[in-house]
């Protein structure tokens, strides 16, 4: 084996071993479980069947997948709409202030995910700060139904994943050659036209990365739908959770998981292709 190859494998070794043991093996087990029958008292009966898959495409479960996709998509779009301007502002700020802004963006991660989600319950419930504030301002007479619905779930998901979107887009924008934007203006483009024709196309890899990130993390999320949705809106993550822990139907839970992983893989792959294409084209902008 050539020396450099040996070195590469040595360096990759720990990471690969970790991934193999704790990602590839469990995923492989999931795939295997998906083709067997459930045991009468939980667990697996090793009898081959395709019934789990035919059950998964039942309209009931399809509609849960669609709802999950809708909620995740909505969260991704809203996160982009909020995150892009923020990322733009940070990337265009004086260099010494950028780090401070980025730290502020990451600040929520210093507290626990569950605690942050409970905080939203405090904010959004009928007697919560938001409703009290609105009532105090005389804007509403009745408390608004802000909690235990789709609005609350989307709000929670956007809140949680927004920092990733900001970071992904920030890195795209900060790599833009400012002279390319000036060239657009010099050639007669107004600021909005420069944005649509130059800035946005060149930062699309960051936008795609952010969007896929939010979507993938949201569609499989079960804590936020559970806590902020109050269990009224079933997302696929909740169903899988229930199959494993309540219904004790491991094979069916495995099947749903596997379909979910498949959707995520397709999205991540498409995004990787987009990035590769854009990087190929971005040679000058990044030089």
């Amino acid at each position: 084996m050539p020396r450099s190859l040996l070195r590469d494998w040595l360096l990759l070794g720990p990471g690969l071993t970790w991934l193999a043991l704790f990602l590839v093996v469990p995923c492989g087990m999931l795939l295997v479980f998906a083709f067997f029958e459930r045991g009468v008292y939980g667990g697996i009966d090793y009898i081959f069947t395709l019934e789990n898959f035919s059950r998964a495409i039942d309209p009931l479960y399809l509609s849960i997948f669609l709802t999950s996709a809708k909620v995740a998509g909505l969260a991704a779009v809203i996160a982009l709409l909020i995150g892009y301007p923020a990322a733009y502002a940070i990337a265009r700020a004086p260099a010494r202030r950028q780090t401070a802004y980025l730290v502020l963006v990451m600040l929520p991660f210093w507290s626990n995910y569950l605690i942050r989600t409970y905080a939203w319950i405090v904010l959004l419930n009928r007697e919560g700060l938001v409703n009290k504030g609105l009532a105090g301002l005389g804007l509403v007479s009745e408390p608004l139904p802000l909690l235990y619905n789709e609005f609350a779930i989307v709000t929670g998901l956007v809140y949680n994943y927004l920092p990733f979107v900001v970071l992904a887009i920030y890195s795209s924008i900060s790599r833009l050659n400012p002279e390319v934007l000036e060239a657009s203006e010099d050639l007669g483009a107004s600021a909005p036209r420069t944005f649509w024709r130059v800035t946005l196309p060149l930062t699309l890899p960051g936008v795609a990365a952010g969007a896929v990130f939010v979507f993938v993390l949201s569609i499989g999320n079960f804590i936020t739908p559970d806590l902020l949705g109050g269990g009224r809106l079933q997302m696929v993550g909740n169903v899988i959770y229930d199959q494993f822990l309540t219904a004790r139907d491991w094979p069916f839970g495995a099947t749903l998981s596997f379909i979910l992983i498949g959707i995520m893989m397709i999205l991540l792959f498409s995004q990787a292709m987009l990035v590769r294409k854009a990087q190929g084209e971005g040679g000058i902008a990044h030089a």
Binding site: N177, E179, V180, A183, G188, L202, G282, I284, A285, A287
Partner: peptide, 27 residues
Amino acid sequence: PNRRPVNLMFQSYALFPHMTVTQNIAY
């Protein structure tokens, strides 16, 4: 700058990397 009848050729050339030669010139 976008309303001035002068054009600047940048030192870095600042070509639009996502556009072809024709698209760059037509912009």
